[in-house]
Amino acid sequence: MSTKTIEEKQYLVRFKADTKSHLTVLDHDICMTKCPDKICTIFCPAEVYKWEGLRMQVGYEGCHECGSCRIGCPYQNIKWEYPKGGHGIVFRLA
């Protein structure tokens, strides 16, 4: 079957998650007070960011390490590092 949802898509990918997040939302208040769109929750291709009413939940374990959130956050509110060597996403095909 071809995938239909992001959950199904993410299920196809191999991740070797680190225990520590390589993505950090610097100030959750900025998300709450200044950013009505919470645009990272929309454009992130892996649905890493989920707004939980008071703070941004960061599901770094499913991150594709594309860098969009670092560049696309309108408030430069995301600290973006590479996961520890050998960790993070592991593409097997393309």
């Binding site: 079957m1 071809s2 995938t3 993410q10 196809l12 990918v13 969009s68 593409f91 097997r92 095909l93």
Partner: peptide
């Protein structure tokens, strides 16, 4: 063109 295909990997990149 892709009917009946089986998804094998999903990838995002800039």
């Amino acid at each position: 063109l892709i009917e009946g295909g089986e998804s094998a990997e999903y990838l995002a990149h800039l």
